[in-house]
Design a protein around this nucleic acid. Structure first.
Ligand code: SF4
Ligand code: SF4
Lengths: 137, 137
DNA sequence: ATATTATAGACATTAAGAGTCTCTAATATC
DNA sequence: GATATTAGAGACTCTTAATGTCTATAATAT
């Protein structure tokens, strides 16, 4: 019971793109090298993010990926949702009416999601940026 | 990203055992029929619960499983933990010091676990019992 | 002693995640 | 317009974990 590696890659890439000066595009080649994984695999992940609207892609020379204009509103949950889909952690196929067990599990999951929804990627990006600046000085 | 079926089976079995009058033992055969799965498979799951201390087993004729004496203190999280292990939902193998992403994920997971820890199985069992009584009357 | 029941472990099957490879489509540059 | 560059799509393989089966062993009641 773990979040997939793909989610991890997606989160890292998002933060990295947010740190690009002027919101310039970065190719999948470069992004893949940073995380030491194959470009084609990362490409699949980024396509999901593109379809979800969290990044924008432009093919061709000088193309690549850049974070979308909703940059300041993208939460952790948004990214996770784009990669993992909207499946529930606990999924009993039967669904008895008024199921007590399911209620508890759903409630707990909600608590987690609320937290993930309230945390914006931009906050992390900014913190990471200021950490880097501290190291330089 | 789902909890395993095994966890579901475990939760159901726990509630069922809590509803046994006088805390009498029930064989895996009967428990398996209730959930329509093979006795040997359920057996593996119940062994985990036994080792975790949430149920007690007695081999031999008239043996079976019964809920442990800590009956009134067993939480959802206890059972889940016994089956799923204590792995974290988000597990980056690198663990950079002071990692910001990991912090957020851990925090969110904590929120879920707190809820699962606060919910006791006995509450569900009692609710289920009173629901059954209502139906009878 | 015998029947009954849990436990252990080897084994097979299935499903999902992770990753590769190749071909196509779109774009910039010359 | 030709060419280089880049994303997207899809078939494919590999790996891992969950799921489940089978058989043999150990413990207990009668
Ligand atoms: S009681 Fe709830 S969790 Fe259990 S089988 Fe019914 S719907 Fe599923
Ligand atoms: S920043 Fe955090 S999540 Fe990312 S690689 Fe480092 S430890 Fe892992």
């Amino acid at each position: 019971m773990r979040y997939s590696n793909a989610t991890n890659y997606a989160l890292h890439t998002m933060v990295h793109l947010m740190l690009q000066p002027g919101g310039s595009s970065v190719g999948v080649q470069e992004l893949a090298e940073l995380q030491q994984l194959s470009p084609t695999y990362l490409s699949k992940i980024l396509t999901k993010l593109t379809k979800a609207g969290w990044i924008e892609s432009t093919p061709g020379a000088k193309g690549g990926y850049k974070v979308s204009r909703t940059k300041h509103e993208i939460s952790f949950l948004d990214v996770i949702h784009a990669i993992e889909g909207d499946t529930s952690l606990f999924d009993c196929s039967i669904h008895h009416e008024g199921c007590l067990i399911e209620n508890v599990m759903r409630q707990a999951e909600e608590n987690m999601k609320r937290e993930l929804e309230s945390k914006l990627l931009i906050e992390i990006a900014k913190e990471a940026e200021s950490q880097q600046n501290e190291e330089k000085s």
